[in-house]
Design a protein around this nucleic acid. Structure first.
Lengths: 331, 331
DNA sequence: CTGAAAGCGCTTACAG
DNA sequence: CTGAAAGCGCTTACAG
């Protein structure tokens, strides 16, 4: 079903059909008489006509395609953000491609070029590295993009207020009477890791606490990373901490495994707090305290911001508010 | 950078450039002299020319776009299958759209139409319902598609051999001496749930075992579903089972939570076995026995099958072999 | 071996 | 209010 066929069925010129279908649903102002317009709309609906997006983007030079690059979609956190993206994009008639970069700079580059070769209108990066070269380069080439999940100074981003999240955990553990704590800090190239950690440690010091140098352990964001980091904390810290803050729920779960193999009771011998409040946290055999970040909302916000960028507007970065949920693992 | 510009830089006709760029990387047979061909290829690389996909699909009527519909991408199982899809699709120059249907028939329909309006070459469904009306309808309209994850008789699918997976669990629990078992069976509209359950129960009976009517509890695939199902099993079964088979790791984790709140030790008082061997299983505080299904491989296979369908070939459904990993939860 | 033309399906200024 | 033309960037059968 093409515009031409539809027009000939109606006995009008294709351009008239196009004009009508592009006017607002009510206002066919200038496109055609309101009578003709109605006939056209009815017939289009009846025949199930949808304009060929390839053809119209060829004319308009807008594809309504958005590219999304994330470290990995099998990370629940990114999958939920992507749900928000898909939802918001669909509402404004955009379609999205997602690709995994595995947090590897070469892959980030390669996937970005694939997206650009597909002629996406803009990009959303969920995998920004604080020290990356790619982003400044793309900005220089005039490629429109926004960041989500992780921020990088100088570029618009939609993130959780991770500093604030770290502070919430510090307040909670301090109030619960803990004085010796350690942080499973995540990857130093990710603002999520850096901000959550610095929010925590800065507030801890404000409260009068002390964190030894080996009390902050950088790590992978996954269970394996958490497991190794906890192992290290148990081995190297002069005083064994009574509480652990992991900047990611999966790392927290890994750490819980380590504690268990050392015969330490989670919540009893050692408090554990995670981050993101993934659906698993509350459902674990020992429910995990965690900071909830509004993941889908972050994704939706990123889409709105990107649309503004595409419209040539200036955009401000957004930091969404986190909430701490205290459960048995640190009660 | 367009074909025309590139051609004028070289002093040849655009059609010549197109012909060369479409011949195999070496064989410019008939396209141009090997000398001209080389000049064209060099210049194209140097100027970073990539053909506009919108323009070429308008001519060729092939978009190299694939649509993927899954229940939800935030389900780790589907996210991993999608990783396989993305990888295989990229290798053959295809791009993919993913959308969530939330296992709702209306959504499945709606998302399918969005994909078709985008003019995808074909579709991959990861959310097929055994009793759904959509698939036969699409087949009737001549829409090319394959299934993955879940099968439906009559349509080509790439799945795990779920019946076999259920049998592996039955063999294991029987050999470990269990005689009273219950199954957290998943959703009855999903072949994964039905096949894993029937594989288990059929083999259990072959071995001489008995499963009471309330020993099979249908449930959601997530932690909440597993939690409720386990609750029900503990309350309704005359004899308390000594082992639980959950057809999904997340349901298994939910069940572990329930057992714990009833003061039952997982692996001690009750064995638990899951399915899919998601990365979490081995890393849980009490490591979970689980059947590993080759998730990425399923995704890759689905892409290959769809490409065959698009080439007009007949395709056979594929069932990939599962492997059981026994861990502390059922040792 | 290479050029020239036609046309994929649409949109949009321009006439009338 | 409506038609007709031009053109987006490509590919492909057809000449020569």
């Amino acid at each position: 079903m093409t515009l031409k066929v539809l027009a000939s069925q109606l006995g009008v010129h294709p351009s008239t059909v196009s004009r009508v279908l592009h006017a607002g649903p009510r206002g066919a102002r200038g496109a055609a008489s309101s009578e003709t317009a109605q006939r056209i709309r009815d017939m289009a609906r009846q025949l199930g006509y949808t304009p060929d997006p390839q053809a119209s983007s060829l004319r308009t030079r807008r594809t309504h395609l958005l590219g999304v690059i994330v470290p990995r979609l099998s990370d629940l956190v990114l999958a939920l953000m992507y749900e928000g993206i898909e939802e918001a994009a669909a509402l404004s008639g955009h379609s999205t491609f997602v690709m995994n970069s595995h947090d590897d700079e070469r892959e980030q580059r390669r996937k970005t070029e694939v997206m650009l070769a597909r002629r996406v209108d803009g990009l959303i990066f969920g995998d920004a590295h604080l020290d990356g070269r790619l982003l400044p380069e793309l900005a220089g080439r005039g490629v429109p993009f926004v960041l989500m999940n992780r921020r990088v100074p100088g570029f618009p981003s939609a993130t959780c207020d991770d500093v604030r999240g770290g502070e919430l955990v510090a307040d909670h553990l301090w109030a619960a009477g803990h004085r010796d704590v350690a942080v499973i800090a995540g990857e130093p190239f990710a603002s999520t890791a850096v901000d959550r950690t610095s929010g925590f440690t800065a507030r801890w010091r404000e409260l009068g606490g002390h964190i030894p140098a080996d009390g902050v352990v950088w790590s992978g964001f996954d269970t394996a990373g958490g497991r190794e980091a906890a192992e290290k904390i148990l081995q190297t810290n002069a005083t064994r901490p009574t509480a652990l803050f992991a900047v990611n729920d999966f790392a927290a779960i890994g750490a819980m495994g380590t504690l268990r193999s050392h015969g330490l009771g989670v919540g009893q011998d050692m408090a554990v707090v995670g981050f993101n409040d993934t659906s698993l946290a509350a459902e674990l055999p020992i429910p995990l305290s965690s900071v909830r970040s509004p993941l889908q909302e972050i994704g939706r916000t990123a889409v709105h911001m990107l649309r503004e960028v595409l419209d040539g507007q200036d955009v401000e970065s957004v930091r969404l508010e986190p909430t701490l949920f205290v459960r048995e693992s640190s009660a």
